[in-house]
């Protein structure tokens, strides 16, 4: 079984599983994706990608069918680039002119500090480079989706990928749970709360639920949009850094960026809204396929350190926000 996954070159053709068990596997992954998506509709805090991964892990570890695991791995050849490309529909590149410059700068600073802190701590505690980058991307940009998008570029181990998703989700949920209390006890303004949630929370869904209680959901999501937009830049940079030849960007990153740009600008919002579930389901299926083939015991063996680093990174970002807030920048 492969320890890492690689996006295949689709120009060379793809051998689709056509057997009965292959169909069953695809169907299973589809159900995982659908279930995750439906759950995320019920509660945005439940990130569909995370849920799909968990469902995949549960299904894979219960069934423990090597043949189906091989099929799920093979399905990644199609699902991963397709999911990444379609996930561009979920990226809404904001118009930075709408924001005050200090908000944009603060958001970028907080994200960068979180990114750097995690990278630095990971190096300090001898965490693998791939896992640290995944955690940094997940913490600093847009959580699970960022991890899923950059993972083909970094080619991490599946357990590291899965652990990163779980860790980022756990840390994000911690923030989502505690932010209302923090807002309540500190007495910060709703606008500042929106900036805090948008700039420090990991996933869009978590920003949504944490800001929903305060009533600044749109503002928080707008700030979050700034971080989400960073995925394009980071993906571009990482693809260049980790490409085998200089100035090479994988085609699915290009298509991802193109779809994101196209969806944010020219594509009618109705069509985008209509296609987003499809994109989410397909990407969820991708995560389910990854989770299906991963061993939970290997996932848990990454240890507590990445979790602690992620917490520290998040808290650092929160501390930077506090400094900026109390320093009068915001």
């Amino acid at each position: 079984m492969r320890d890492s996954f690689k996006i295949p070159d689709l120009t060379k053709g793809v051998g689709l599983p056509v057997s009965k068990i292959g169909g069953y596997t695809i169907l299973l992954l589809f159900f995982c994706g659908i279930a995750a998506y439906i759950t995320s509709i019920y509660d945005p805090a439940f990130e569909p990608l995370f849920l799909a991964l968990i469902f995949g892990i549960i299904a894979g570890n219960f069934q423990n069918d090597e043949k189906m695991k091989r099929i799920s791995e093979k399905s990644l050849m199609v699902l991963l680039p397709l999911g990444i490309t379609l996930y561009g529909l979920n990226i809404n590149i904001p118009y930075l002119g709408e924001f005050r410059p200090e908000i944009v700068i603060s958001t970028l600073l907080i994200a960068s500090v979180m990114f750097v802190t995690i990278i630095w701590l990971s190096k300090l505690l001898k965490i693998s480079r791939h896992l640290s980058l995944l955690l940094a991307c997940g913490s600093g940009i847009c959580g699970v989706s960022a991890i899923a998008i950059v993972s083909p570029l970094l080619r991490p181990k599946k357990e590291e990928f899965s652990a990163a998703i779980i860790i980022i989700t756990a840390v994000g949920l911690t923030g989502a749970i505690t932010y209302p209390s923090i807002g309540h006890f500190t007495g910060i303004s709703p606008d500042d709360y929106a900036i805090m949630a948008g700039a420090t929370l990991h996933q869009t869904g978590l920003v949504k639920i944490s800001s929903h209680l305060v009533g600044v959901e749109d503002e928080a999501l707008a700030v979050k949009g700034i971080r989400i937009a960073m995925i394009a830049l980071v993906a571009l940079v990482l693809s260049i850094l980790y490409s085998e030849s200089r100035l090479y960007v994988p085609w699915y990153i290009v298509t991802f960026l193109a779809v994101a740009l196209f969806a944010s600008t020219y594509l009618p919002s109705q069509i985008v809204e209509m296609l987003r579930p499809v994109a989410t389901v397909v990407f969820s299926m991708t995560l389910a396929a990854i989770g299906y083939s991963v061993d939970i015991r290997k996932v848990q063996r990454v240890g507590i350190k990445p979790l602690l680093i992620s917490y520290v990174g998040w808290l650092t970002g929160l501390a930077v926000f506090a400094i900026l807030l109390w320093g009068g920048v915001l």
């Binding site: 439940f46 860790i167 063996r301 507590i304």
Partner: peptide, 22 residues
């Protein structure tokens, strides 16, 4: 939902704590 959130967090922490110990 919040209970579920806490449960996920606790499970995740427990997962990696256990993993760290084990």
């Amino acid at each position: 939902s919040y209970i579920a959130y806490v449960a996920i967090v606790i499970l995740s922490v427990a997962l990696f704590a256990a993993g760290s110990i084990l």
